[in-house]
């Protein structure tokens, strides 16, 4: 009887080992944010956009860091800055505002993984083409 009990216990342990349940380990990997720079020239009545991939659902910050004349002189002109999804021949914005260049992010948006875009356009204030630099920080 003792041998039978030991054998039964062995069978139970073996059966349990054969049925290991799959467990999901928490993902503790640290995702470093990426900063992309979108530089170009904005013409009068013009608009240009830039597409990028968000890999993790963290905030995306967009900073119109500089706006200058072709001579390099900084200007305080306001332009339209938008954040959205590429659609058709443009960037379909979900958030947009009129702003001058600055050191702090003008747009802060939480985005799930996917493809997004930033668009800069003239509101009618430009009297000449301006060079711009936009910093896009995302994960």
């Amino acid at each position: 009887m003792k041998r039978l009990a030991v054998f039964g216990l062995f069978v139970c342990v073996a059966a349990g080992a054969g049925c290991q349940s799959e467990t999901t380990q928490p993902d503790y990997s640290i995702v470093s944010p990426v900063t992309e720079t979108f530089q170009g020239t904005l013409n009068q009545q013009g608009a240009v956009f830039y597409s990028f991939i968000v890999g993790n659902p963290d905030p995306v910050s967009v900073t119109l860091a500089s706006l200058t004349k072709s001579s390099g002189t900084a200007v305080t002109t306001s332009v339209r800055l938008g954040f959205g999804i590429p659609a058709g021949e443009t960037c379909s914005t979900t958030t947009a505002l009129t702003t001058a260049s600055g050191l702090q992010a003008q747009v802060l948006q939480v985005a799930s993984p996917g493809v997004y875009c930033v668009i800069i356009s003239d509101t009618g204030a430009l009297t000449e083409p301006l060079n711009f630099a936009i910093k896009i920080k995302h994960s």
């Binding site: 054998f7 069978v11 059966a15 054969g18």
Partner: peptide, 19 residues
């Protein structure tokens, strides 16, 4: 004989549980 029978039963149960 009982030991073999029990072992066989255990094996069948283990297999079905892992189906």
């Amino acid at each position: 004989f009982r030991s073999c029978l029990l072992g066989l039963l255990g094996g069948v149960l283990a297999t079905s549980a892992c189906g």
